[in-house]
Design a protein around this nucleic acid. Sequence first.
DNA 1: TATTGTTATACTCTATAACTATA
DNA 2: TATAGTTATAGAGTATAACAATA
Lengths: 162, 162
Amino acid sequence: MTTPGTVRDDLGWALGMLTRSYMRASAAALHDVPGGPRGYQVLATVGRDEPPNQLALAHQLGLDRTVMTYLIDDLEKAGLVQRRPDPADRRARRVVSTEAGSALLCELERRLIAVEQDLLGPLGPDEATALRDMLQRLATRVDDGANACTVATEIQATGGAC
Amino acid sequence: MTTPGTVRDDLGWALGMLTRSYMRASAAALHDVPGGPRGYQVLATVGRDEPPNQLALAHQLGLDRTVMTYLIDDLEKAGLVQRRPDPADRRARRVVSTEAGSALLCELERRLIAVEQDLLGPLGPDEATALRDMLQRLATRVDDGANACTVATEIQATGGAC
DNA sequence: TATTGTTATACTCTATAACTATA
DNA sequence: TATAGTTATAGAGTATAACAATA
């Protein structure tokens, strides 16, 4: 319902289309989580290893610490996480998952698996794993900081026919 | 600089990471286009076939007609497109590309090809085409309206162990 | 002086509705 | 009455800066 067949046959279109679809579906699957997908990410991060403080949480999730405050406010009000004083640093708060939070996380992961399977449905099983592998490799490389804009700087030089 | 290695090893993370990277890079490549990526999309659509009116343009690009007004305002101010009265319907305006608009489009497409190649760089050539093909198939299927939320409705039924 | 967390403010997008001129 | 385009307003989301408590 968005595009014709002529203009958008490129990578950017496909990537955007797929990501939007995934975001829609996952947001729907996480509708009962305060903060939506972000709330889920907090739940998923909390409870593994040592409970992180809010700043570490914000860095891991690529958020500003101010939005982390609001996010945890909502999750705490819903009884899914708790703020606890850090015995080693009285400025910091360690965020821990409650029973309810862990139970919900368990349910959410089931839902998200279903969403992914639905999204990749039209691919054959070996194709799906190949796609996951390639996306994983590309994303990991991007995450490692290789995303410096090497392209933008060398653009002026090319100057050519269309 | 965003994530650790533990939590985000799933499809959603990779997809989001890659899309954000692409959006960053393409936005940088299109920095001198009024409206950014959207301005580019308008330029790319205008000039093929019959010049479309603003509403058709908005539908094709999945935008509201109100944002299309602002977008074309900016593009017109920059001398890249022109609004012309539609001889067949005096309510409508046909949007046509200027000389400068066509020249810029030509340049922009070069830049975006470079961005895509940079993004898919770590893949082998046959891998890259396989990825493009799979993304294209998935996105096209999503675009055809198969994105009805079939998952969300059947989630309650599963109820199981983590 | 720097850092954790909170709060308040401003700014950017987007969505909605109202308005005009045509059909 | 419905449609193409414009304009104005309100809301969500985000970013920025200032603040308190502690290191």
